[in-house]
């Protein structure tokens, strides 16, 4: 998929673990893992908002578009 999720990069920058983010965003660890590994098909605005709020970043810091080669 040409949409890349850079959640792991932002988590590393903020020095936040998956467990901590999961607790703060109120999303299950398995769902967060699906999002992190790029297996997710879609993301709700509410989820994106919560992640951006906790990680103090913009949606563009988490999502990136890379066209298929």
């Amino acid at each position: 998929m040409p949409i890349i999720v850079n959640l792991d990069v932002m988590m590393a920058r903020r020095k936040m673990s998956l467990n901590e983010l999961s607790e703060k965003v109120d999303i299950t660890l398995s769902n967060l893992s699906i999002l992190k590994t790029g297996k997710a098909k879609a993301i709700r605005f509410s989820t994106l908002e919560a992640i951006c709020k906790v990680l103090d970043c913009q949606p563009a810091d988490i999502l990136e578009y890379q066209p298929d080669r």
Partner: peptide
């Protein structure tokens, strides 16, 4: 349903 399951 699969798509819905993979919507976070």
């Amino acid at each position: 349903q699969a798509e819905n399951d993979l919507t976070i």
